[in-house]
């Protein structure tokens, strides 16, 4: 039987007094692609940000309800946010590569979590760039600036960067 990776129950999201998300109830099954479709401004990004607690960075934002990842509520006070954000990867609407080389962008995540060995990093970078269909285009220019890539390439780079930390869930 398919398990639910995420189980969202009675989720309310407020930006100050603005009630942005109202009583969301949603199951997101594992090993599947779930798409949220809606008009611009209806709250899709806001909802996604609830799943990895990126809304914590927005002052005045408050969340009520339960968001369970593999059965544990991520809004529990004891939640390890670093670990959560590594498990739940996110790519943003606008490409936002770091002002570094392509290699350093993809290697950023693994380096954060302690990977130092040069050859391991090279393997991870290659694997991640293959997954995001960018490897063949950049394999010879890995150490050139990421910002020199086209918009579409930059977004694929951001996907590779998110994938490099091997998240269990990918949101975009």
């Amino acid at each position: 039987m398919e398990k639910d990776k995420f189980s969202v129950r009675d989720l309310d999201l407020f930006y100050g007094s603005n009630h942005a998300l109202k009583k969301i109830n949603l199951q997101i099954p594992e090993r599947a692609v779930t798409a949220l479709i809606g008009p611009s401004g209806c709250g899709k990004s806001s909802f996604l940000r609830c799943l990895n607690r990126m809304n914590d960075f927005i002052p005045g934002c408050s969340v009520k309800g339960k968001v369970e990842l593999d059965g544990s509520d991520i809004y529990d006070p004891g939640t390890d946010l670093i670990h959560l954000r590594r498990r739940v990867g996110m790519v943003f609407q606008r490409p936002n590569p770091f002002p570094m080389s392509i290699f350093d962008n993809v290697a950023y995540g693994p380096r954060l979590h302690g990977v130092r060995d040069r050859s391991s990093l090279r393997d991870i970078v290659e694997e991640s760039l293959r997954v995001s269909a960018l490897w063949t285009e950049v394999r010879d220019i890995l150490h050139s600036p990421a910002l020199a890539l086209s918009g579409g390439q930059q977004q694929r780079l951001c996907i590779a960067r998110a994938v490099a930390v091997q998240p269990e869930v990918r949101g975009r």
Binding site: M54, F92, F98, P99, A162
Partner: peptide, 27 residues
Amino acid sequence: VPKDYRDASYALGATQWQTVRKVVLPS
């Protein structure tokens, strides 16, 4: 320094100090 860079860093599981040290300050 654009907010985008910080968002990207946090979304990858960085701590605040890591984000400041590795992305914000160099930029």
